[in-house]
Simulated scan of single mutants.
Amino acid sequence: MCDGMSAVRASRDPAADVSTSDWRVFAGEELSPILRGALEMFHEHGYHGTSVRMIANRVGVTVPALYYHYENKQAMLAALLESGLRELVTRARQAVAESSEDPVERFANLVECLVLCMTHRLQWASLDSELRHLDSVNREHYAALRKEIETLFATILHTGTQRGIFDTAGVTDTARALLGMFQAIVTWYDPAGSVSPEKLAERYVGIAARCVGVSEQVLRWLDSRGGTRPDRTE
């Protein structure tokens, strides 16, 4: 038998290499039936409460057929985590690349992107709490991918702080605190509620901007996101 990571690499879902033309547009995840079934069952019953047989029954295949594609339940969890995170990284890169060199615009785009992903991909985002069930190899692999988001955020914060636009006590700590705030959305957000993902993202851009000490003038500009930032001199 191959090890857990080999199983993930061999059967990684095509969505792991997602390519999207618009980071704000979310269609359904391009998951295989097995991974779709696993995602739904993990979301409904938790990783520990879900058996391989339950996933097989949801998908409509036999247990041996499921094992043909994935070595074990952990391999399915690892594949889902990697697939979703690669989509998040792709969208985050596009959100930053679409903006100008202005750190405020980059910051706003990245915050918007992350909140949209947390809400539109709620089932996947909820899997982050199941990381403890991964072995050390899979956990380190996922952590390395997730580090890219933290680094992207910290780089923007560092640039803005150096230019006197942001006021942060510590770039790394601030980035981690904000990312934790976004991740916590999955614990309370209701897709059937009155607040759309887009409206929530708009609100969180303002909340996050206040957390990094932007001026009221810039906050007003963020509300409209039109034209050149009024206090921009660089």
Score class of each variant (00 low, 15 high):
Val171Arg: 00
Glu140Thr: 05
Arg225Ile: 07
Val137Arg: 15
Leu145Val: 01
Tyr204Leu: 15
Arg220Trp: 07
Arg139Thr: 05
Ala177His: 01
Gly193Val: 04
Ser196Tyr: 02
Met181Ile: 09
Ala169Pro: 08
Tyr189Leu: 05
Ala201Val: 10
Gly206Asn: 08
Thr151Leu: 14
Thr119Trp: 00
Ile165Asp: 07
Ile185His: 08
Arg163Cys: 11
Glu198Met: 09
Arg229His: 01
Trp124Arg: 03
Val195Gln: 06
Arg163His: 12
Val171Thr: 04
Ile149Gly: 04
His158Gly: 12
Glu216Ser: 15
Phe182Val: 10
Lys199Cys: 00
Thr119Glu: 01
Asp190Tyr: 12
Gly180Leu: 07
Leu127Val: 11
Leu145Met: 07
Val115His: 10
Asp128Val: 15
Asp223Cys: 06
Val214Cys: 11
Ala143Ser: 10
Cys113Trp: 11
Leu222Gln: 02
Pro230Ala: 02
Trp188Asn: 07
Cys113Ser: 12
Trp188Gly: 03
Arg225Thr: 03
Leu157Ile: 03
Thr168Pro: 03
Tyr142Gly: 00
Ile149Lys: 06
Glu216Thr: 11
Arg146Met: 05
Ala125Phe: 02
Arg132Val: 14
Arg232Met: 05
Val218Gln: 10
His158Thr: 14
Ala108Pro: 09
Glu234Tyr: 10
Glu216Leu: 13
Val171Ala: 06
Ile207Thr: 14
Gln162Phe: 05
Asp223Arg: 00
Asp173Gln: 15
Glu148Ile: 12
Ser215Met: 04
Ser194Val: 14
Glu234Ser: 05
Glu216Ala: 15
Cys113Asn: 07
Ile207Ala: 13
Ser215Cys: 11
Asp135His: 06
Leu131Pro: 06
Glu140Ser: 13
Thr151Arg: 15
Cys211Lys: 10
His133Phe: 15
Thr174Tyr: 00
Lys147Asn: 07
Trp124Tyr: 06
Val115Trp: 01
Gly227Gln: 02
Phe107His: 09
Phe153Tyr: 07
Ala184Trp: 04
Cys113Leu: 12
Gly160Lys: 02
Ala108Leu: 03
Glu150Trp: 05
Ala125Ser: 13
Ile185Asp: 09
Thr155Lys: 03
Arg146Phe: 09
Glu234Pro: 05
Asn109Arg: 11
